[in-house]
């Protein structure tokens, strides 16, 4: 996810430093980034010269000190409150007073993450969509202590990066996941309740509503284990029964049916082809 956000920034002309504690992760990201831009050139979406300039905007480091001159740091580290708070607290020591810290968290509270920093007024939620280099949407949310100036500056940066920000609040799931996670759970519950087969539920949603993907195909794609984690992140906070983990989801994960990545979820996948539709 971080690599995708770095592509967005570099492509818009910002000098961008990718920071990761893992050198392997940095090397992987560099390779993927190169591949992405080479494809863009191949497909005629970009000149070779432009590609080289954009790649020239990117550098990598596994040392936090490298971020000392940054005006904006967007974190996309593990989805773990402790890890994120610790990172912000370390960044406090390295970065200027004026540096803005954006968080790409999907499920955590911006205010709680910001409490790791001595400058919570400089912390703002900036939730990109996967893959960030292709998806324009950024859900932006101020924490309780975020200053208007921070929010406005981060908003302007997002627009300058060619993205489309929407303003939302520091609530579980912001807009997108707050609508999506319970909807996908409801589809799982409909399978469990014998309303229809997964294939017919997906077909109904696609043909009836014009969605590109049915909810069960989507859960297979993001992973059934990830869907459980989303439930566990939201339900204890919202107590929304629709966000509670459907029993069928737990049984399927216990049986090793994780979706595409394990070869079977609501559908069977063999050699990348989908069966059961």
């Amino acid at each position: 996810m971080g690599a995708g956000i770095a592509i967005v920034a570099a492509r818009a002309g910002f000098k961008t430093i990718c920071f990761d504690t893992s050198d392997d992760a940095l090397a992987r990201a560099e390779k993927q980034t190169r591949g992405f831009f080479d494809k863009s050139v191949e497909r005629g979406k970009m000149q070779a010269q432009e590609r080289d300039a954009v790649i020239g905007n990117l550098s990598r480091s596994s040392k936090l000190d490298a971020l000392s001159d940054c005006d904006l740091v967007i974190e996309a580290v593990f989805e773990d409150l402790g890890v994120k708070k610790k990172l912000l607290s370390a960044l406090d020591e390295v970065c200027a007073e004026t540096t803005i810290f954006g968080s790409n968290t999907s499920t955590l509270s911006i205010t709680e993450i910001a409490s790791g920093s001595k400058r919570p007024q400089r912390v703002v939620g900036m939730h990109f969509c996967l893959p960030a280099q292709l998806m324009k949407l950024v859900e932006m949310s101020p924490g309780v202590l975020t200053s208007d100036e921070t929010f406005a500056t981060a908003w302007a940066w997002t627009e300058a990066a060619g993205q489309k920000p929407v303003k939302t609040q520091d609530k579980p799931g912001f807009i997108l996941n707050a609508l999506l996670v319970p909807f996908n759970n409801d589809a799982i519950r409909a399978v469990e309740a014998g309303v229809a087969s997964p294939a017919d539920i997906d077909k109904a949603i696609k043909v009836g509503l014009g969605y590109k993907m049915g909810p069960l195909e989507l859960v297979d794609l993001v992973g059934l284990d990830t869907q459980i984690r989303l439930c566990e992140a939201f339900y204890p906070i919202t107590l929304d029964p629709r966000a509670a983990c459907p029993p069928l989801l737990r049984r399927m994960v216990a049986a090793g049916l994780l979706g595409r990545k394990s070869g079977r979820g609501f559908y069977n996948y063999q050699g990348g082809a989908m069966f059961g539709a």
Binding site: C129, M135, K136, L137, E139, K164, V166, K167, T168, Q169, K171, I175, L176, A178, L179, L180, L209, G210, Y211, K212, M213
Partner: peptide, 20 residues
Amino acid sequence: GLATAADMDLTCRLGLGYPD
């Protein structure tokens, strides 16, 4: 007040590819 109607709709169109 989570978001405006326009921003909620835009989020679903851009983020999830819904037609509306």
